[in-house]
Design a protein around this nucleic acid. Structure first.
Length: 438
RNA sequence: GGAGAGGUGGCUGAGUGGCUGAAAGCGACGGUUUGCUAAACCGUUGUAGGGGAUCAAACCCCUACCUCGGGUUCGAAUCCCGACCUCUCCGCCA
């Protein structure tokens, strides 16, 4: 959520920002409604002042004087009632509209329409694989896809996954299931042991307000699995989170943190669920776009400072890169263009890892910077030590690793001519020393 | 699932219709005292919105908030209804 005061001061900035993000929102209507609401609130406040002072008088009066004062007070009450009705009508309207206003992108973010307009900032290759050359030139044989490899080895079982749970479901068997865990463990341990992030285990079942707070709702409702507890007498429905970010951000909802305790740097590993509504027919093969996966996610909650936000944005990006480098997977960083940015994001880096079967770099990570946007929705503040003022925090998040998607480049890049898969060196300690699968 | 009890400020806890944004204690912060520490003493100490003053802050005024929503009343932390949440006991299950 953006600051309504800033919107009043400089509406054009927000109108331009929404246009750059290709998001429709009627800002003039919002401002008009908000002005009417403010006026009504001011009037109500005046009426309350009258009521309050009259109330105190009445307590001291008696007889006819008292009766007269009471009659007068009744008038003020009736007028107040009318104004209250106006407020009751406008307030939800204004709040709903305000929730829709996007955070303007950083000025330096490249303007563009779709992900095709994202701008590459750098790429990295391990010594043994150059993405500029074909696979066969790098490894001396024609590659198989991760699906072919997985089926050949009997480790990736899509039919049984589909039988149990429908499309976009899968089963990992044996050493592939172990590799999946190894990837997560390494990433999690790296964040905790090397980077000093606080490990947290959070709910993946959350209430509506957590997802409104993180900015997924109200627009992402159809992407989220819903547990209809209200149908069976429950007080609230629950939602199954699509990322650990939700639980980590929800941690400090409605809190005022001690400024000296910032930044808070959290990491969690959680199973993530996504409906993938509207993605029918897209990426249907294999384990690229699936309904359930596991992800190590990092979140930073820092002070209300653009410099700090920028610093931690680079830091969480570097953390993810460090893990990919440890895996020796070729990747590139892109800056996501304005048209491809989410409503709440000021700037976003995607990390795209090379996938031979797709002959392209494909998104495996997404590092977002929100400034106050999420914190306002979450009502997440801190007390600044020097001024004792309560300020909204800044928040950022990034994937550390998401699996099984990252198993695609691992399987395909580490495959051997005979269809076996070499285990990346850093993962072997998590695989009981195993060097090769199959 | 059955039966009870209860939700007041950072915390503990008083308060059954106007003088209560809320006693008292604790904690925190500032100060005095002190060789240092501790103790003692004095003072300050919620949040949000609006208005005024100001270059800006400090500052001043108003309004709202005693879980939430409705109701009664001229007036509600206090009375009534509903919701939500917490705790205890029993049962059931992991």
């Amino acid at each position: 959520m953006i600051d309504i005061k800033l919107l009043r001061q400089d509406p054009q900035r927000f109108i331009d920002g929404a246009a750059a993000k290709r998001i429709e929102v009627d800002i003039p209507a919002l401002l008009a409604d908000e002005a009417r609401l403010l006026e009504a609130q001011r009037e109500l406040q005046e009426l309350r002042t009258i009521q309050n002072s009259a109330g105190k008088k009445i307590a001291k009066l008696s007889g006819q004087e008292k009766a007269a004062a009471i009659a007068e007070m009744k008038q003020a009450k009736d007028r107040a009632k009318a104004v209250e009705d106006i407020i009751a009508q406008l307030e939800p309207k204004v709040a709903g509209l305000l929730l829709q206003v996007p955070l303007p992108p950083d000025p330096a973010v490249p303007r563009g329409q779709t992900s095709d307009d994202n701008v590459e900032v750098r790429r990295w290759n391990p010594p043994w694989f150059d993405t500029a050359r074909p696979f066969a030139a790098n490894k001396g044989f024609q590659p198989r896809t991760h699906i072919e490899l997985g089926e050949m080895l009997g480790l990736l079982d899509i039919p049984r996954g589909v039988r149990m749970s429908g499309s976009r479901s899968y089963v990992l068997w044996g050493r592939l299931a172990q590799l999946h865990q190894a990837v997560l463990r390494l990433a999690f341990d790296f964040m905790v042991n090397q980077q000093g992030f606080t490990p947290v285990s959070v709910p993946v079942l959350v209430r509506d307000n957590v997802l409104v707070g993180t900015g997924f709702f109200p627009f992402g409702r159809e992407q989220v699995y819903q547990i209809k507890e209200t149908d069976r007498g429950g007080s609230q429905d629950l939602y199954v989170t699509g990322t650990g970010e939700a639980g980590l951000m929800g941690l400090h909802q409605d809190e005022i943190l001690d400024g000296d305790s910032l930044p808070r740097r959290y990491v969690t590993v959680s199973t993530c669920f996504r409906r993938e509504a509207g993605a029918a027919g897209k990426d249907t093969a294999g384990i690229y776009r699936i309904h359930q996966f596991d992800k190590v996610e990092q979140v930073v909650v820092c002070k209300n400072s653009v410099e700090e936000s920028n610093k931690y944005h680079e830091e969480i990006l570097a953390n993810a890169e460090a893990v990919l480098k440890a895996f020796e997977l070729p990747y590139r960083i892109v800056v996501v263009c304005t048209g491809d940015l989410g409503r709440g994001q000021a700037k976003k880096y995607d990390i795209e890892t090379w996938m031979p079967s797709r002959k392209n770099y494909c998104e495996t990570h997404s590092a977002s910077k929100f400034y106050e946007f999420q914190a306002r929705r979450m009502n997440l503040r801190y007390k600044e030590t020097a001024t004792k003022k309560n300020l909204f925090c800044h928040t950022l998040n990034n994937t550390v690793i998401a699996s099984p998607r990252v198993l695609i480049p691992i399987m395909e890049l580490y495959q051997n001519a005979d269809g076996t898969i070499t285990v990346p060196k850093v993962l072997r300690p998590y695989m009981g020393g195993k060097e090769r699968i199959g």
